[in-house]
Design a protein around this nucleic acid. Structure first.
Length: 856
RNA sequence: GCCCGGGUGGCGGAAUGGUAGACGCUUCGGACUUAAAAUCCGAUUUCCGCAAGGAAGUGUCGGUUCGAGUCCGGCCCCGGGCACCA
């Protein structure tokens, strides 16, 4: 199984070995259950039409090295690849060309697969998954039904970007500067009925679960910030208007209650209407109208100056009975806390800015130890002018005041999160259909008994034109619910997806017990369980399929479960997950949420999906800018492979710098690693294409060479474990430079070198391995072990310092005593002049490293 | 504004508190060649010096230490994330 060429013909060599792997499939997982398992996963790609760019194989090369290294170390390795293939670009392409997005998607997948295989990655292709495959999304839909059953999926009116000109809903990324990216039409907010997942129910566990995982700190921090837990109190302020009862606010600083000088409601707050005084109504209504027309962006970024209006109403501060005015301002958000705040301008920057602008009183109630602080002051301190609480530390006061108010029934300890529930529906064709039909209340009651155990405790319903519609889940037996063919992939024009136009699919007679359906245009089939239904026309977002794919890889063809309990028990989640930091929050948070839900229902054994996470850095263009088509600085792996081969590309991607770093692509640098391979080739393979005469069976390598070999074996192993591939490669270069200088090198040394090179440059290593006549495969041989005795030397280089400055060095025997070391230093010709005439005041001796003589 | 990460030769980068610049690129010199490419050998932080050698040097200012690229504090740049969340 070698190629015929005499020189390093990488194209031929790589082609041969790739077809060998294709044929023999040596990288299948689960072949030997007696071995320990290792599951190493890449974030699967969206197969775009543009094909692979150089950033993809960076992370893939890293995981491939680890996978091959672990196999050589005796692990049963699961290393799979698949396709996150639903998504907007495929749908846009379908709209433009009229062809089914699946066709284009399959073309793109074929191209991605070809490109990935050309890099020689050791994926188990038998486990490939594709989120758009009905056999896959059957289980995505099944998971949705579990969320539905558990009351974690509900419907709500939520705003979306609506383009009246195009009569379609647009995603955030389709909008540029407040206009549609295509056509440049104006867009507006429009409320639509949407599916929402109750991720907030898991907020606390999503936060605490971060403690137990081996993730980059920055990513943990980002998730924690996104979840945004804050502890405080809900406090009820009585309103003067007796009919209105109380006004509830959330505050993290109940200790500053004595400094509350006004209150603010979000413009959308339900009490704004009722409590506004008649003489202020016109102004307040106008303000609310203006706020409603502003986008989120305008309400935050652009509106640097705070604005608001007085409602004419007053509330009563529960701690001191003071009468305080109630304002409306859009710096208070409706979605957080209670949508209303107690304003403490002395100790909150935002309130301070607002109070200053509108001339509202500012009362300081917290003082640092060194006396009154410049306001606004949000730091540590004790209470002042706060009645019975004066003198307490703010932390102490926070607890006591909440407790006291709670005893009077006007406060309670409370926790709030920034995390919002997850908007889970898209008005698109190219996504997983949501397996729900909508029926009347009456029909729901009729169908319910047959769906025992599949329904949420509270029915999910909404009202439209006075008619209540209730969500009925498809039974699992009716999954997958596939996308019906459509004439046009354009959205319906009413804000619904193209599915709404498929009358025979949407409007149906539906058998709740079996999930069978026939078009409503036909007669109602016989049988009591058939009801009139309308199918859900929303589809799932792209996140859905990627939320659980790592589980499917463990048992990708299972038709009875998302994966068998045995497969899940064997593989668990990935031991290592590698992907871009751009997914630090959303993908990883959503997947963790689903995983915890699945864990709670007993479907998966672990509580967290990704034990160890690593983000590869971004590879920038030659110009140091982000690679993009418009900049024209995109590097394609195909062209690099043509000129240097996949092994050189793999080596170079890893040699560029630390995996996690952002680093520019330098087209010349690849010459270096390519030369390295050429050099190894020439040192191992002779003129005739067979083993070089330099490689001698009986050659006695020098102790220095063996020391270097064993150091290299150790360092390469350590560096792979630590994901420091760049230094592993440089160590192998050092070894090669040394081997190159030898007239003859033993076969054993050469083979060991090829083995540690194999994970990095697998085609190359296998080829040379077999040319040397070594048995089997380089990748199948057990990882070489290093001998510590070879590494330790009898002599070490000791550095002589005088007052911390290096003045010389010398080879000394290991175990040299301090006195001997001092004597050697004093006698050293380079060192002695610096000691002449000085008194030795101190000696610092680090055996085997340095001796520092401090003189005066 | 807040929270992170990072500033080391011409370039990418390497350095458990212990010889700063490994390894590679670039450039220069030499060998081989009719010549070129490839390859091989050597040099390549800056300054002073013919040399031996010496001095300075890891964004910047200060500190801790026998000794700091590494630890601590201030400042300046660059990159990323969040951004009225009460």
């Amino acid at each position: 199984m070698v190629t015929g060429s005499k020189d390093y013909d990488f194209l031929e060599i790589e082609r041969r070995w790739q077809s060998f792997w294709e044929r023999e499939r040596p990288f299948r997982a689960g072949l030997d259950p007696s071995r320990p398992k290792y599951y190493v996963l890449d974030m699967f790609p969206y197969p775009s039409g543009a094909g692979l760019h150089i950033g993809h194989p960076e992370g893939y090369t890293a995981t491939d090295i680890i996978a091959r290294y672990r196999r050589a170390k005796g692990f049963d390795v699961l290393h799979p690849m698949g396709w996150d293939a639903f998504g907007l670009p495929a749908e846009q392409h379908a709209v433009k060309t009229g062809t089914h997005p699946a066709a284009n998607t399959q073309n793109n997948i074929a191209n991605f697969r070809r490109q990935i295989k050309a890099l020689g990655f050791s994926y188990d292709w038998d486990r490939e998954v594709d989120t758009t495959d009905p056999l896959y999304f059957k289980w995505t839909q099944w998971i949705f039904l579990q969320l539905f059953r558990m009351g974690l999926a509900y419907v709500d009116e939520r705003p979306v970007w609506w383009c009246p000109e195009m009569r379609t809903v647009l995603a955030n990324e389709e909008i540029v500067d407040g206009r549609s990216e295509v056509g440049g039409f104006p867009v507006e907010r429009k409320n639509l009925r949407q599916w929402v997942l109750r991720i907030t129910a898991y907020a606390d566990r999503l936060l605490s679960g971060l403690d137990g995982v081996d993730w980059p700190d920055s990513t943990k921090r980002m998730q924690a910030a996104w979840i945004g837990r804050s502890e405080g109190a809900e406090v009820v302020f009585a309103l003067e208007h007796p009919a209105l009862g109380g006004l509830k606010v959330f505050t993290t600083r109940p200790d500053t209650l004595f400094g509350c000088t006004y209150m603010v409601l979000a413009p959308e707050h339900a009490l704004v209407g009722p409590l506004t005084a008649p003489e202020r109504r016109a102004e307040v209504d106008e303000y609310r109208r203006r706020a409603a027309s502003k986008s989120d962006l305008e309400r935050t970024d652009l509106a640097k100056d705070k604005s608001g209006v007085f409602t004419g109403a007053y509330a009563v501060n529960p701690v001191n009975g003071e009468r305080i005015p109630v304002w409306v301002a859009d710096y208070v958000l409706t979605g957080y806390g209670t949508g209303a705040i107690m304003a403490v301008p002395a100790h909150d920057e935002r309130d301070h800015e607002f109070a200053t602008r509108y001339g509202l009183p500012i009362a300081a109630v917290i003082e640092p130890a060194e006396g009154p602080a410049k306001l606004p002051y949000a730091g540590d301190g004790n209470l002042v002018r706060s009645g019975a609480y004066t003198g307490l530390s703010w932390r102490e006061a926070k607890r006591r005041m909440t407790d006291d108010l709670a005893a009077r029934g006007c406060a309670r300890h409370s926790v709030n999160y920034k995390l919002r529930d997850w908007l889970f529906s898209r008005q698109r064709y190219w996504g997983e259909p949501i397996p729900i039909v909508w029926v009347s209340e009456e029909d729901y009651r009729r169908a319910a008994p047959a769906l025992e155990g599949l329904l949420p405790r509270e029915p999910v319903s909404y009202e439209e034109g006075g008619v209540v519609r209730v969500a009925l889940p498809l039974p699992a037996s009716a999954l997958p619910l596939e996308l019906p063919p459509v004439e046009s992939y354009l959205p319906s024009g009413t804000g619904e997806s193209a599915l709404a136009n498929v009358a025979g699919w949407v409007d149906i007679w539906y058998d709740g017990a079996t999930g069978r359906a026939v078009p409503a245009s036909g007669p109602r089939p016989g049988g009591a369980t058939w009801v009139r239904a309308r199918r859900e026309t929303n589809t799932m977002p792209q996140w859905a399929g990627s939320c659980w794919y790592y589980l499917r890889y463990t048992d990708p063809r299972n038709d009875n479960a998302l994966a068998s309990p045995e497969a899940l028990a064997r593989w668990g989640g990935p031991d290592l997950y590698v992907g871009g930091a751009e997914h630090a929050v959303l993908h990883l948070l959503y997947a963790r949420f689903w995983h915890k839900v699945l864990h709670d229902m007993g479907a998966v054994p672990t509580d967290e999906p990704f034990r160890k996470l690593f983000h590869q850095g971004i590879i920038l263009g030659e110009d140091g800018e982000k690679m993009s088509k418009s900049r024209g600085n995109v590097v394609s792996p195909d062209t690099i492979i043509e000129s240097y081969g996949a092994d050189s590309l793999r080596l170079y991607l890893m040699f560029l710098g630390p995996l996690e770093a952002m680093k520019p692509w330098n087209p010349r640098g690849i010459e270096g690693v390519h030369r390295f391979l050429q050099k190894v080739w020439r040192d191992c393979v002779g003129e005739d294409g067979r083993a070089s005469p330099r490689i001698a069976d009986g050659a006695a390598d020098t102790p220095e060479l063996l020391k270097l070999l064993h150091e290299t074996i150790r360092k390469v192993g350590d560096d792979i474990d630590g994901m420091r591939f760049n230094t592993a490669i440089s160590q192998m270069m050092i070894l090669e430079n040394a081997l190159h200088k030898e007239a003859a090198v033993s076969r054993a040394t050469t083979l060991a070198f090829l083995q540690i090179l194999a994970p990095f440059a697998p085609h190359f290593a296998e080829e040379v391995w077999s040319r040397l006549g070594a048995p089997g495969l380089a990748s199948a041989a057990p990882w070489p072990s290093f001998d510590p005795a070879r590494i330790s030397a009898a002599e070490v280089r000791l550095v002589f310092q005088v007052c911390g400055k290096t003045r010389g060095d010398q080879l000394v025997p290991v175990g040299l005593s301090q006195d001997q070391a001092v004597a050697l230093a004093q006698a050293h010709e380079k060192v002695a002049p610096f000691l002449a005439g000085k008194r030795l005041v101190k000696v610092v001796y680090v055996p085997g490293r340095i001796i520092n003589l401090v003189v005066a």
